[in-house]
């Protein structure tokens, strides 16, 4: 399992709708902030890159120091972004695919307003379980 991993879902309106620190490293607040800053900055690159390929999984699009940003863009232009320091491409891909499925399930909830924050604890639990499994 990766020592550092920050997973975030960004809606098509560039609003983070789900955030989770899924690494095993001890949680430090300033580190978490840095992770978000890196992910936020990577959106610029994703925005261009997403249109150059038909694949949803964009692999690693950006890096800062040892931290790599991998992105998975859904058809609705929701971006699943993972900041990690490990090079486990296959695991990350599987992780993204499974989270995508979870996300679709959330979207299907008639009470969920697309683009708003995902507050379901079930979703959170599942994402963390997937992170443990794949990362």
């Amino acid at each position: 399992m990766a020592t550092t991993a920050c997973f975030i879902i960004v809606s098509r309106n560039d609003i983070p709708i789900y955030e989770a620190e899924v690494g095993v490293a001890a949680k430090r607040e300033d580190a978490a902030q840095l992770h978000q800053f890196i992910l936020h900055a990577a959106l610029d690159i994703v925005q261009d890159l997403a249109w150059t390929t038909s694949a949803m999984y964009l692999k690693s699009v950006d890096r800062f120091n040892e931290l790599v940003v991998s992105v998975y863009v859904t058809a609705g232009h929701t971006r699943l972004m993972l900041l990690h320091d490990s090079r486990n491409d296959d695991g990350i891909k599987s992780f993204f695919q499974d989270v995508h499925e979870l996300y679709i399930k959330t979207l299907l909830n008639p009470l969920y307003l697309p683009g708003s924050r995902i507050t379901s604890s079930h979703f959170d639990t599942k994402v963390r379980a997937l992170a443990r499994k794949y990362l």
Binding site: N13, I15, P16, A32, Q33, Q36, F37, L113, S116
Partner: peptide, 19 residues
Amino acid sequence: NHQSAVSLFESQWSTLQMV
């Protein structure tokens, strides 16, 4: 209109903004 409402709050990265 929902979309217009959402667009009002684009990029609400509250953690970053606070920092």
